[in-house]
């Protein structure tokens, strides 16, 4: 883009400040608390896979990760949304260093699985939302898309950590612009892997069940 060295450094600095501001804002609104698994988080690059109901989901996961893990963790997000405008592109690419994948199969220029595999090979961890889109239904969790299976098909040794994000959908439902301060929790489960010879359906169902098992009894939903 023809930026000088100074401009690149400036942009990186602004991105860093913006990232800190996002984390601070998310914490002030949600008082977010992480619940860690008994065995701790994997030290190697891994895939955090979470339920998806809000644009703020990956910010919350990112905010609770310990800084040493956070710096090499990249969210996987839809290119259509995050390249829509200059601001979106700056937040997606520069602030959160997202792995941007094209969701519409017909218009793809790059293979999403190949992008994720190369990010892991580079030593990054990923935050992945296997539902593929934000869940706007009454269902707690939508069926998983197969991307996560194709990923472990190529890198079967990679650790998979289920992450349940609770309450953020109430903080900022779709279409609202003002967030409501509510307490959110992010629950990390024990590390999983693909079993040798496991087929796609069985694997996806096992991952989905492991994620659902972390969901607390719905607070504030009446019953």
């Amino acid at each position: 883009m023809g930026l000088t060295g100074g401009e690149i450094r400036m942009k990186a600095l602004v991105a860093k400040v913006a990232a800190a501001a996002f984390v601070l804002f998310a914490r002030a609104i949600t008082a977010v608390r992480a619940i860690w698994p008994e065995e701790g988080l994997p030290a190697k690059p891994c895939v955090y896979f979470a339920n998806h109901s809000s644009h703020g989901d990956f910010v919350l996961v990112w905010a609770v990760l310990p800084p040493r893990l956070r710096h090499r963790t990249r969210p996987v997000a839809g290119a259509e949304y995050w390249l829509k405008s200059h601001t979106n592109a700056f937040i997606g690419r520069d602030v959160f260093n997202a792995v941007l994948i094209e969701r519409e199969r017909e218009k793809r220029t790059q293979d999403p699985v190949a992008l994720m595999v190369s990010a892991i090979d580079d030593g990054s961890s990923l935050i992945l939302f296997p539902e593929g889109t934000r869940n706007q239904t009454e269902e707690r969790l939508l069926p998983f898309k197969s991307g996560i299976f194709h990923l472990v098909d190529q890198r079967p040794e990679v650790d998979l950590v289920p992450v349940w994000i609770n309450n953020l959908n109430r903080v900022m439902p779709k279409g609202e612009i003002v967030p409501i301060p509510l307490i959110c929790t992010v629950t990390f489960g024990n590390t999983l892997r693909v079993a040798p010879g496991e087929d796609k359906e069985a694997f996806l169902e096992r991952m989905r069940a492991a994620l659902l098992a972390l969901a607390p009894k719905p607070a504030g939903s009446g019953e």
């Binding site: 609202e176 003002v178 409501i180 301060p181 509510l182 307490i183 607070a219 504030g220 939903s221 009446g222």
Partner: peptide, 20 residues
């Protein structure tokens, strides 16, 4: 305190502006 309280009550999307 309000954040703790509202976290535990039943709300719907229609309450968004009232809560805000």
């Amino acid at each position: 305190a309000l954040r703790e309280f509202i976290t535990l009550i039943y709300t719907r999307r229609a309450d968004h502006w009232a809560l805000a």
